[in-house]
């Protein structure tokens, strides 16, 4: 069964940027290319990407007392998986900047989203904060504006944490404007709620 977290749009390789029909090897070249399907031109630069070779030491020829990889018996282990502790060689080492994982644990960690750097899909708290703030403004006279304002601030705090984890700047002009807007919304909402409750109870008479 395919894990839905790991499903992505099928990508078939280079395609015409205008009509999206698949380009065969004959059409992958540098210069002005005319698409054989839509007959329109585009400028392109072609590359021949080399396959990165990894230095893999064999147990027999590697360092003295080298341990064997759990998946490749002839290869010397270079590290261990930080999730299951399995000894792994350079071929199995799935290290993308978030620690070394064996291929199986890498798939699981990525599917779970437990390591922020490896999560394929995350919730967009920034968008949720914006929607909460706008909804609070629209429902300013319906008692829930302060709640929605607080929600906007909470979502924004989570969004900032996400941005920091991604390496982005957490404080942008938009973020400051949204925060001020949410605070005003809470204050305004509380004031309007107090006025409405006062008017309904007759406290102002």
């Amino acid at each position: 069964m395919v894990n839905p977290q790991l499903q992505v749009d099928s990508y078939q390789g280079p395609e015409c940027p205008r009509c999206h029909s698949r380009l065969t090897a004959d059409w992958i070249r540098t210069g002005i290319v005319r698409c054989p399907d839509c007959n329109r031109d585009f400028e392109s630069t072609a590359f021949t990407p080399p396959t990165r070779r990894l230095r893999v030491e064999h147990v027999a020829t590697g360092p003295v007392e080298a341990n064997a990889c759990a998946n490749h018996g002839r290869n010397a282990a270079v590290t261990s998986c930080q999730r299951c502790g399995l000894l792994i060689c350079a071929l199995c080492d799935m290290n993308v900047g978030a620690g070394s994982y064996c291929p199986l644990c890498f798939d699981r960690v990525r599917a779970e989203g437990s390591v922020p750097g490896l999560a394929g899909k995350t919730r967009d708290y920034g968008a949720m904060a914006r929607v909460s703030a706008i909804a609070g403004f629209l429902f300013l006279f319906m008692f829930i504006a302060p709640v929605l304002g607080i929600m906007a601030l909470v979502y924004q705090a989570k969004g900032r944490k996400q941005q920091r984890a991604r390496g982005d700047k957490p404080w942008t002009v938009g973020a400051v404007v949204l925060m001020v807007f949410a605070i005003l919304e809470i204050a305004g909402g509380v004031a309007i709620d107090a006025l409405m409750i006062g008017a309904m109870t007759g406290a102002f008479k």
């Binding site: 992505v8 390789g13 280079p14 940027p17 205008r18 380009l23 992958i28 290319v33 329109r40 031109d41 585009f42 400028e43 392109s44 630069t45 072609a46 590359f47 990407p49 080399p50 990165r52 999560a119 394929g120 899909k121 995350t122 919730r123 967009d124 968008a127 949720m128």
Partner: peptide, 25 residues
């Protein structure tokens, strides 16, 4: 990519690049 409230991320590594195109539409 942002779809509604879900943000998904993928990478195009420079070492994997086969073709870069430029056009006007």
């Amino acid at each position: 990519s942002i779809e509604q409230y879900e943000r998904s991320r993928l990478m195009v590594l420079f070492e994997d690049v086969i073709l870069v195109t430029y056009h006007r539409e």
